[in-house]
């Protein structure tokens, strides 16, 4: 069994996890296993990428890196766990657009951490463009078609992976730009939403590129617009929203963040290793296949990035009416 050795590593890590939060950061970091808290249930894109990154970091740092799923409350539960952990460099959270930009606005005072100041943001891992796709028989080929449909008496149905997601907020924002509210149809996850679009029950969908990529390639849906600053290298034919006259560019993202107060040396080291790992040609091609772009920011750059995202999404959340109370 070729995977036996890696299990020994996992085993060793389990024994050391209890001590992780207690010991002061030793001189030679890492001297014990590192835990990456993923604030989502196993199986999502974030979880998947976290495991990929964990495997890469484990090799580079020479210490075991384990993934710990703490899902719940719009990804805020897991993030809170990390915000309150000891800043010794052995606990990280997979910070993301939900936990660190949207949910704090949605959940308000129930989120007991500050997404910017309670963390030492270490590295941006990936950004995923948002893409709008349409059923091939819907007649919608461009955003102008979509807006025309929205203004028609029947209106335009747009599916998303859920209320309060960045995709939902995109629909709200697009409605504002088009001057006509779109009929938002939330689903429980991207899979069922995509199925409804393929089946023609819903005309359009606002989705993140990784989950839509394969369906676009297979032609089961048509990509109408890419909501990012530039066209995506894997989908050069899909024009951006800006090219089509709608000033909207927003990517979903996730990265790695320590609790605030973690020694700068550790944060920098993790940043270097993560960027080196993400920069390898193999990973770049895997991410390109997935539809994402590997992140390449310094810790300061990532912190500034999170700060900007928080400022960007809060008013949109207010406008969408998606609050938890």
């Amino acid at each position: 069994m070729s995977w036996a050795p890696s299990r020994r590593v996992l085993l060793a890590s389990t024994m050391t996890v209890p001590m992780a939060g207690r010991r002061a950061a030793a001189q030679a970091w890492p001297s014990q296993s590192i835990r990456i808290v993923v604030p989502f249930a196993p199986g999502g894109t974030t979880d998947l990428v976290a495991r990929l990154v964990a495997a890469g970091l484990q090799e580079r740092l020479g210490a075991s890196v384990v993934v710990d799923n703490r899902a719940g409350a719009g990804a805020t539960l897991g993030s809170e766990v990390v915000a309150r952990s000891a800043p010794d460099g052995y606990t990280l959270v997979m910070s993301n657009i939900a936990s660190h930009a949207i949910s704090p606005a949605v959940y308000g005072t129930r989120v007991r951490y500050n997404p910017v100041t309670d963390f030492a943001h270490a590295a941006l891992v990936v950004t995923n463009p948002t893409v709008w796709v349409a059923n091939p028989n819907s007649g919608i080929k461009t955003l102008a078609d979509a807006v025309a449909k929205a203004r028609s008496p029947s209106g335009l149905d747009v599916a998303t992976s859920g209320a309060g997601s960045s995709n939902h907020l995109m629909v709200v924002r697009m409605g504002q730009l088009a001057g006509k509210e779109m009929n938002h149809i939330p689903f429980r996850g991207a899979g069922p939403a995509m199925q409804a679009v393929i089946a023609g029950q819903v005309a359009m969908m606002s989705d993140s590129l990784p989950s839509a990529a394969s369906h676009i390639r297979q032609g089961s849906v048509v990509a109408v617009g890419m909501a990012s600053a530039e066209r995506h290298p894997s989908f050069p034919d899909v024009p951006t929203f800006r090219e089509q006259g709608f000033d909207l560019a927003s990517d979903s993202w996730f990265g790695l963040s320590f609790p605030a107060g973690t020694p700068a040396g550790i944060v920098d080291r993790l940043n270097r290793e993560t960027r080196a790992f993400l920069g390898s040609p193999e990973i770049r091609s895997r991410f390109a296949e997935l539809g994402g772009t590997p992140g390449d920011l310094t810790p300061d750059g990532y912190t500034e990035f999170v700060r900007r995202e928080v400022a960007l999404w809060a008013p949109l959340v207010q406008a969408s009416g998606a609050t938890a109370d």
Binding site: G74, V106, G162, A163, G164, P186, F187, R188, G321, A322, T323, A324, D325
Partner: peptide, 9 residues
């Protein structure tokens, strides 16, 4: 729990 349609608790 969270209402799927509105996100309300």
């Amino acid at each position: 729990g969270t209402d799927v349609q509105t996100g309300q608790q």
